[in-house]
Amino acid sequence: HRQALGERLYPRVQAMQPAFASKITGMLLELSPAQLLLLLASEDSLRARVDEAMELII
């Protein structure tokens, strides 16, 4: 289940942060499945989480 969510998330994360897409997707997969579904449904929520992840990385 998580694998399938990751496969759906990755291209969207890659479009926002290509250099760190794998790392960010891995970080996002730590969230609950319900939270992941919310990110897939909301571009704004996904962008906010990706921005948060980038702050942790750099």
Rank of each mutant, 00 (worst) to 15 (best):
L28F: 06
F20M: 11
S22G: 12
G26L: 14
A53C: 11
A4C: 10
E55R: 11
P18F: 06
V50A: 01
L28C: 01
S45Q: 14
S22T: 07
R2I: 15
G26N: 13
L31Y: 09
L28A: 00
F20Y: 13
I24F: 01
D44F: 03
R12I: 10
R47K: 09
A48K: 11
D51W: 07
L31A: 05
S45R: 14
D44C: 06
P33Y: 10
D51K: 15
P33N: 15
Q17V: 14
L40F: 11
P33D: 09
G26K: 14
D51N: 12
L46R: 00
A48N: 12
A19F: 13
M27V: 05
A21E: 02
E52V: 10
A53D: 01
E30N: 06
I58E: 08
L29C: 04
A53R: 02
A41R: 06
V13H: 01
L56P: 01
L9S: 00
L46Y: 01
V13A: 01
P18Y: 07
V13C: 03
L37E: 15
I24P: 00
L38S: 10
I58H: 07
E7V: 10
D44G: 10
R49F: 09
F20H: 12
E52R: 04
L39I: 13
P11L: 14
Q14T: 05
H1V: 09
A48E: 12
K23M: 09
L38F: 14
V13D: 00
L39Q: 01
T25I: 11
R12G: 05
S22E: 15
L56E: 13
E52A: 07
G6N: 07
S42M: 03
A4K: 14
T25P: 00
K23L: 08
E7G: 04
I57S: 02
V13N: 00
L56S: 14
S42C: 05
D51E: 13
L39H: 02
A19V: 14
Y10S: 02
S32L: 09
P11A: 12
A19C: 08
R12T: 09
R47G: 05
L5F: 14
R12C: 06
A41N: 14
L39C: 11
E7H: 06
Q14G: 04
E7F: 04
M54A: 09
P11R: 15
P18K: 05
R47V: 06
M16P: 01
Q3C: 09
E55V: 12
E55Y: 13
L28G: 00
D51R: 10
P11F: 14
Q3Y: 08
L28D: 00
V13W: 01
P18M: 07
R49G: 04
Q3N: 15
V13T: 01
L40E: 05
L29Q: 02
I57C: 05
R8C: 10
L38I: 11
S32N: 12
S42H: 07
Q35P: 04
Y10V: 04
S22R: 08
Y10L: 15
A34W: 07
Q3A: 07
L28R: 00
L46A: 00
D51V: 11
M27W: 15
I58T: 15
L40I: 04
L36M: 06
S32K: 11
K23R: 10
E30Y: 05
L37T: 07
H1A: 05
R47D: 02
S22L: 08
T25H: 07
H1F: 08
L38A: 10
L31Q: 06
T25D: 00
E30A: 06
L39W: 02
K23V: 09
A48I: 14
R49S: 11
F20C: 05
E43H: 05
A34T: 14
H1M: 04
E52S: 06
E7M: 11
I58V: 07
G6H: 12
L28V: 01
L36Q: 02
L39K: 00
I57A: 02
S45E: 11
E43V: 08
A34L: 11
L37D: 05
A4R: 09
G6D: 04
D44L: 10
A4E: 15
L31W: 03
S22N: 14
G26E: 15
L31I: 09
G6E: 15
P18T: 06
V50L: 14
L31V: 04
L5C: 06
R47S: 05
L39V: 09
S45A: 14
D44N: 10
L39R: 00
A15G: 06
L40T: 03
L37W: 05
F20Q: 04
E43M: 08
Q35V: 15
I24L: 05
L56K: 13
H1I: 10
M54H: 08
L38T: 08
A41F: 08
S42Y: 04
P33R: 07
L46D: 00
T25C: 05
A48W: 04
L28K: 02
A4D: 15
E52I: 05
E30L: 10
Q3I: 08
S45H: 11
L39Y: 02
M54I: 07
D44R: 06
T25G: 01
I58P: 03
R12V: 12
R2M: 15
V50I: 11
E55I: 05
Q35E: 10
D51M: 10
R47I: 09
V50W: 01
L31T: 03
L31G: 06
Q14V: 07
L46C: 01
E30I: 07
A19D: 09
A34D: 09
L56F: 06
L36V: 12
H1K: 06
R12S: 10
S45M: 12
E30D: 15
A19G: 13
A19M: 11
D44S: 12
V50N: 00
Q14Y: 15
L31H: 08
P11S: 14
G6W: 15
L36D: 00
L39T: 08
R47E: 05
L37K: 06
Q35C: 11
L46H: 01
L40Y: 02
A15W: 05
L38E: 10
F20N: 04
L40N: 02
Q35H: 05
Y10W: 11
E43Q: 11
T25E: 01
S42Q: 05
M27P: 00
D44P: 05
A41W: 06
A21H: 02
Q3R: 07
M54F: 12
A21R: 00
Q17R: 15
Q14K: 15
